[in-house]
Simulated assay, not measured.
Amino acid sequence: MFKLDALSKMTTEEKYKYMLILVEGQCSSEKDALANLSNASAIIKSCMDKLNWAGFYFMRSGELVLGPFQGLPACNRIAVGKGVCGTAAAERKIQRIANVHDFPGHIACDSASNSEIVLPIVKDNVVYGVLDLDSPELNRFTELEEQYLAKFVDKLNKYINWDEL
Rank of each mutant, 00 (worst) to 15 (best):
D49L: 08
P104V: 12
G55C: 14
K50Y: 06
A89E: 06
C47Y: 00
C85P: 09
A74G: 15
A90N: 07
F2H: 09
E116I: 09
M1C: 06
P73N: 03
N125A: 14
W162L: 03
L165V: 12
D134A: 00
N114E: 09
K151A: 14
L37H: 02
P73L: 07
I44M: 10
S28V: 09
K93C: 04
V127D: 02
F141P: 00
P73H: 11
V126I: 11
R60C: 09
K3G: 07
Q70G: 03
F56I: 12
S115M: 07
Y128Q: 09
E146C: 05
D49F: 04
V118Q: 06
V84G: 00
N125S: 14
K15F: 09
D5F: 09
A35K: 10
F56R: 05
K45Y: 15
W53H: 14
I43M: 03
V23R: 00
S8W: 10
A90W: 12
M10H: 02
N161R: 07
T142F: 05
T142N: 05
G86L: 04
S135Q: 01
P120V: 04
I43P: 01
H106I: 14
S113G: 08
A33L: 07
P73S: 10
L34Q: 14
V80N: 01
G129P: 09
K45G: 04
V126K: 14
M59Q: 10
E145Y: 00
V80H: 03
F56G: 10
R92G: 13
Y57F: 13
L66E: 01
A90H: 13
G71T: 10
L37E: 04
G71D: 14
L156K: 03
K82Q: 08
A98Y: 12
K123T: 12
F2A: 11
S111F: 03
E143G: 12
V23M: 06
N114S: 05
I117R: 00
L37W: 06
I107E: 04
